[in-house]
Amino acid sequence: MTHTGQAEQALGFVAWPTTDQIEDRTTARRLAILSAVLQLRLNEEIREKQGIAYSPSASATSSDAFPGYGYIAVGAETPPESLTKLFDAVDVIAADLRDNPVSEDELNRARRPAVERLRRSMADNGYWLTQLSEAQSDPASLDQTRNNIAVLEAVTAADLQSLARQYLKPDAAWRAEVVSDKLAQ
């Protein structure tokens, strides 16, 4: 794909299909922690070690409306000549997450902020209005809401490695490059 901006700007994007959160939000919550670990590793490798991009990002999305729809995504704005390095680094990070459990320190650095964000959200009426709006039509959602913090706190390194093996497969990765239309000519 192309953009009409500056020639020295490009975007690299990788996404892996995952799953929804319709029946059970546990997997989606674990995927969110996996994406937080991915974010930590992107910051370390892509920003700090290689200096390819200042603000690489990782995220996890799980649909509450479309069965089977979800994804983990990585994106970074980088010079066009660094796109290959970016994709190579993402591949190495994903392979390491599949092949090796994360350390307890890394797990805590990903999990604790998620738990704290949730606790802060729970102090707000907007959170409860959103959560309870489903209660009449889907009473099981109340249990999902009640156990949210416990599910996050219970995520283990083995859980994350299992998810990485299941979803961060090289042959399932979808990649996109967005470069300047000035380079594409």
Rank of each mutant, 00 (worst) to 15 (best):
M1E: 11
H3Y: 09
G5D: 07
A7K: 11
Q9F: 07
A10N: 02
L11V: 14
F13I: 13
V14K: 07
W16A: 04
P17K: 02
T18H: 03
D20G: 11
E23C: 10
R25Y: 00
L31D: 11
L31N: 06
I33L: 14
L38H: 15
Q39Y: 02
L40M: 10
R41H: 07
N43R: 14
E44D: 15
K49F: 06
G51P: 04
I52M: 13
P56N: 08
S59F: 10
A60H: 15
A60P: 08
A65C: 06
F66N: 02
P67Y: 00
P67C: 00
G68I: 01
G70T: 05
I72N: 05
T78W: 10
P80V: 15
P80D: 08
E81A: 15
S82H: 13
L83Q: 09
T84Y: 06
K85T: 04
L86Q: 00
A89K: 03
V92I: 09
A94Y: 02
A94E: 04
A95N: 13
P101H: 10
P101N: 13
V102N: 00
D105S: 11
E106I: 03
N108G: 08
R111C: 04
R111S: 02
A114Q: 05
R117S: 05
R120Q: 08
D124P: 05
W128N: 01
T130A: 15
Q131L: 00
S133N: 11
S133P: 11
A135M: 10
D138W: 12
D143H: 09
D143E: 15
T145Q: 05
N147A: 07
N148S: 12
N148D: 12
I149H: 10
I149K: 10
A150M: 07
E153F: 11
A157T: 00
Q161C: 04
L163A: 02
A164M: 04
R165T: 08
Q166W: 06
Y167T: 03
L168I: 11
D171W: 12
S180K: 09
K182T: 14
